[in-house]
Design a protein around this nucleic acid. Structure first.
Length: 231
DNA sequence: AAGTCCTTCAACCGCCAGTGT
DNA sequence: CACACTGGCGGTTGAAGGACT
């Protein structure tokens, strides 16, 4: 028996997620949840495999994800858990709130494994800062990350201070998706309509602790449209 | 300054377990 | 019981960008 492919290969997009796709996914899940990952991309209007959507959500877009460097305590936890659990990354991640198995796996392979191998007591073998340190600074919280989704063409490797592409907002509002979207007045509120620069209010809102509340409000507001899309 | 090497990490792939029919 | 389908997991890859020569 031939295993069914996880998704229709034809016509589905692969590779890095765009900010538009992130926005669609986040808005959809915040409005309707993710009952069925396989059906989700079709319902949300994404040309992505359901598996890809789930991965993007769980590893990157989930609101409770903690970004930034691992603390000493987290590193120690990973090391000790790895000693007892082995490569069971999801089990290790379960003990580290806000961290994903993928992230822990990456940290292990790029840093902690070497640290163990080198066995240098009390010293950090990481000789240089995280390469995309600018991302870490900019995306300390997921709310800030989501704001980066809205403000940056390339969320994976750029930071929310890259404000050169506000045009995507209009593209987003024009996106032909079949579920209710955030009120356009919201976007016009936070973005200057004709200019290339975001409003000072947006800049102030999308930084710091307030950003989480800000985006929570956005999604709460979007949720009020609550009407299931036609299947 | 230019070319090459190295590091990082988001994303993909294949497999497996659980569940429903 | 057999099969199909789905979600989840772990291994691996490849693009991007910094470090080095």
């Amino acid at each position: 028996m031939v295993r069914a492919p996880c998704c229709e290969k034809m016509g589905l997009k692969k590779g890095p997620w765009t900010s538009e796709e992130d926005q669609i996914l986040v808005s959809y899940i915040n409005n309707f949840g993710h009952g069925n990952w396989r059906a989700l991309p079709k319902l949300a209007g994404l040309l992505r495999c359901g598996k890809s959507c789930r991965l993007r959500w769980t590893n990157y877009l989930r609101p409770d994800i903690k970004r930034g460097n691992f603390s000493k305590e987290e590193e120690d936890t990973i090391i000790s858990l790895h000693q007892s659990l082995g490569n069971r990354w999801s089990a290790i991640a379960a003990q580290l709130p806000g961290r994903t198995d993928n992230e822990i796996k990456n940290v292990w392979h790029t840093y902690l494994k070497k640290k163990i191998d080198n066995n240098v007591p009390g010293s950090k073998p990481k000789p240089k800062p995280k390469k995309n340190n600018k991302n870490v600074k900019c995306l300390e919280t997921n709310a800030a990350k989501i704001s980066a989704v809205n403000l940056s063409e390339s969320p994976s490797r750029s930071c929310s201070t890259d404000l050169s592409s506000s045009s995507m907002i209009t593209e987003w509002t024009d996106t032909a998706i079949e579920f209710p979207v955030v009120d356009e007045s919201f976007w016009s509120e936070v973005m200057s309509v004709n200019g290339d620069e975001p409003s000072p209010e947006l800049l102030s809102r999308s930084n710091g602790d307030e950003s989480m509340d800000f985006w929570l409000r956005v999604f709460m507001e979007a949720g009020e449209f609550g009407e299931l899309p036609e299947i």
